[in-house]
């Protein structure tokens, strides 16, 4: 009796067809589930990166690629003042953009999460509305706002604050920063909103019960607990903006040129793929380092806030 209860009865003998054990294991099922995406990523992400990586060690002679290994491209990328300049400017712009975006997005995410009430879904929906129009169109509309005869200039002149249109608004780095900050706002709001939603409201009550006012409980509980969202927002905005080349091209003028414009030129007009590849790889590495540094810094600040 005991033996029968303890030993698992042989299931195969009941005639029900069973799948082989391999396909029943959860890890195999999981792999099967992600394999289409995985293959897609492999073919369209990893392989191109490897191709770029390989090119960065070759040289180009007009239309032919010389496959002998060389570090010459990296030497150019890391020593030519123009590339270093562009790289620094790109990092600076992306850092500024991600900081501004997060600072502006946090209050919005906070408002929706804490005061959105029943309309949270509606608020999130409203935030996505700008994305119904093309990215190019949104960049162009900033041209209309910031331009010589633009909305901002005529508005300021109408108010009598300036006597002639300012040229300081468009075709420079700040125009790039403004445009990118607006373009990426929703991508920062969403992760911050999600992490704020996860903050247990009882914890905030507990902080107040223990003597904290509104601001202190925010700094000591809400903010530290939402750092994962802040970090993802920073990274989501920072990493792609380094490589943006449409916005600098359209609103950046000659001061707003960024590293991606140089890379694009190497792959296009300048016809020097290996140098373009070396610049790409260098940018990737530097961006990763910066992202790591930002994550480290934000965590350190969050720890201090306790």
């Amino acid at each position: 009796m005991t033996a029968a209860a303890e030993g698992s009865p042989p299931l195969a003998s009941d005639g029900i067809p069973r799948r082989p054990p391999l396909l029943q294991s959860e890890s195999v099922q999981g792999l099967a589930l992600i394999s289409p995406t995985f293959l897609y990523a492999l073919i369209l992400l990893l392989l191109p990166i490897l191709v770029v990586f390989a090119h960065s060690f070759w040289t180009q002679n007009y239309l032919t690629i010389d496959h002998t290994f060389t570090l010459q491209n990296y030497r150019a990328a890391l020593t030519e003042p123009i590339y270093l300049d562009l790289l620094w400017r790109s990092l600076f712009v992306s850092l500024l953009v991600s900081l501004f975006t997060v600072v502006l997005a946090y209050p919005i995410a906070y408002f929706i999460s804490f005061h959105g009430g029943r309309h949270k879904g509606l608020w999130l929906f409203l935030i996505t509305i700008p994305f119904w129009t093309s990215y190019l169109l949104r960049v162009m509309s900033w041209k209309v706002i910031l331009g010589y005869n633009g909305v901002l200039n005529s508005g300021l002149m109408g108010l009598g604050l300036i006597s002639e249109p300012s040229t300081a608004l468009l075709y420079n780095t700040s125009a790039v920063v403004i445009t990118l900050t607006h373009a990426w706002a929703a991508f920062a709001i969403l992760p911050i909103f999600v992490s704020l939603e996860k903050v247990d409201r009882t914890l905030i009550e507990a902080a107040k019960d223990l003597g904290d006012g509104q601001l202190r409980s925010f700094l000591r509980v809400t903010l530290p607990l939402s750092t994962p969202g802040v970090i993802s927002a920073l990274l989501i905005v920072m990493i792609p903006t380094v490589g943006d080349y449409v916005t600098p091209k359209l609103v950046g003028g000659k001061d707003g040129v960024m590293i991606a414009n140089a890379i694009q030129a190497q792959f296009g007009k300048a016809a020097n793929w290996p140098l373009g590849a070396a610049l790409s790889v260098t940018t990737m590495v530097v961006v990763s380092l910066m992202a790591g540094a930002v994550v480290f810094l934000v965590r350190a600040v969050a720890r201090l806030a306790r």
Binding site: T202, L203, A206
Partner: peptide, 24 residues
Amino acid sequence: PANRRPTNMVFQSYAIFPHLNVEQ
């Protein structure tokens, strides 16, 4: 407001701050 009352509460869910250790 709650932060100016001479009362303290033990919450049903305990509301232990997850980012702090016992002492903190």
